[in-house]
Simulated assay, not measured.
Amino acid sequence: MKVSDFDFDLPESLIAQTPLEKRDTSKLMVVHRDSGEIEHKHFYDILDYLEAGDILVRNNTKVIPARLFGIKEETNGHVELLLLKELSNDTWECLVGNARIVKLNTVISFGEGSLKAKCIEIKEEGLRVFEMIYEGIFYEILDQLGTMPLPPYIKEKLEEKDRYQTVYAKIEGSAAAPTAGLHFTPEINKKIKEKGIQIVDVTLHVGLGTFRPVKVDDILDHEMHSEFYMIDEQVADTLNHAKATGKRIISVGTTSTRVLESNIKKYGKFVATNENTNIFIYPGYNYEAIDCLITNFHLPKSTLLMLISAFSSKELVFKAYAQAIEEEYRFFSFGDSMLIL
């Protein structure tokens, strides 16, 4: 299966640059897998498609200001870091903008030395492992020095940082937002619960595995970068009960989907755990965990487009995307939403 099979032409004007004023006024495309029917709604209509007894699974990761601009101490050269994943206390895997100048033991200084990063391991494709050196509380220093890691296709400045967070973001550690969740508001969450739908949270800290471009021709040659996820015991019990009683599990986003599918594939049921996943889902994959999926509109040739093509079918997804382009849906992080039933 070729990566080029998942390419499509997208007018640049449809790449959403800013969030809508009201989160839930985004468009909602509803795709019915059984009939192939496609409906055009708004996100606030999603309640019409949720049923009492459903389990809605969200990713409650919180985006950190993970982009840092610093100075290489030896030469005063400018270096940009993107914090991807905390490996242990004060040790981070990072993507380095101009990695060739960062060697073993290179020290990068941020904020006139209030934070320093010492390179302790060299990895491929611009990845480095750094020991963070500072006094105080790391996330407080990061709040002062870092910026929100908006994707490169967003050129506009984000006026309000919290618009690149879900309203239920809780656990710090993500390098990107789980964007399918950006459409939810406290009011919609309240109505969902009032309808008898149970909301549960898992955590996956979004890193390179989610947004890394596919650079190979054959899908099978692509290696997913691992990302850290957590499921607690109460959530695992709720999900297992839903499976046993025939209740629908509705995943909010591809990151929640990867958590649930990784977990059930490994253990045969849902199990409380804190671990890494590098699951790569593409057509031919047999879904076991989820029944419905809420997602955004994704990049051409991306692993996310492959994931939703595996959940529906590539033909139906590309038919839906063609309609989305025709109807001028907004694409990518701040774009519109899709519900696949």
Rank of each mutant, 00 (worst) to 15 (best):
D9G: 11
I141M: 03
E131H: 05
K118Q: 14
Y164T: 04
Y168T: 06
L127V: 10
D48G: 06
I290F: 04
S256W: 04
L239Y: 03
E327G: 00
C292D: 14
A117C: 08
L305G: 04
T277H: 12
I197Q: 13
D232T: 00
F270H: 12
H241T: 07
H32T: 06
K27G: 14
A52F: 02
I279Q: 15
F280N: 04
S174R: 10
I250Q: 11
S302Y: 02
L182F: 01
K157Q: 11
Q198F: 06
A310Y: 05
Y153I: 06
Y139W: 15
T166E: 09
T147Q: 15
Y287E: 10
I264Y: 10
S251L: 10
E93I: 00
A177K: 11
P178L: 08
R67K: 15
G36R: 07
Y282I: 00
A324K: 02
L82N: 06
G173M: 02
V271H: 10
I141W: 03
E39V: 00
S312C: 13
A272P: 13
I64C: 03
L84P: 03
L299F: 05
C119E: 01
A180L: 08
C119H: 01
H298R: 03
G246Q: 14
I340Y: 07
P149D: 13
K243E: 14
I219E: 15
I308Q: 10
D232N: 11
N89M: 06
K215V: 01
E326P: 04
D232M: 01
G335Y: 07
F130N: 02
E73I: 00
M306L: 14
G97C: 02
M29G: 04
K161W: 13
H32N: 13
S262E: 12
F43Q: 03
Y134T: 05
H32Y: 10
I55R: 05
V96T: 13
F138I: 05
E194W: 11
E223V: 04
K155R: 12
I171Y: 15
I264C: 09
L87T: 03
L10R: 07
M230F: 15
P283I: 01
D24T: 01
L293T: 01
N59C: 05
G111N: 10
E86V: 07
D34G: 05
R163K: 15
E51Q: 08
P151T: 08
A289S: 13
G77H: 12
T254L: 01
G53S: 10
D221I: 10
H78E: 15
F138V: 05
L182H: 01
H222Q: 06
V271T: 09
E39N: 06
S35Y: 11
F280L: 06
T185Q: 08
T185D: 12
E73L: 00
P65I: 00
I71P: 10
S313Y: 05
Y168C: 03
E131Q: 08
N276K: 09
G253P: 10
M306F: 12
K62I: 07
R163Y: 14
F334P: 11
L304H: 08
T106G: 00
V214N: 07
A169T: 02
S337K: 09
N189D: 15
Y329S: 07
Y134A: 04
S109L: 12
D291W: 13
E73V: 00
F228D: 10
L220F: 11
F130Y: 05
G36N: 12
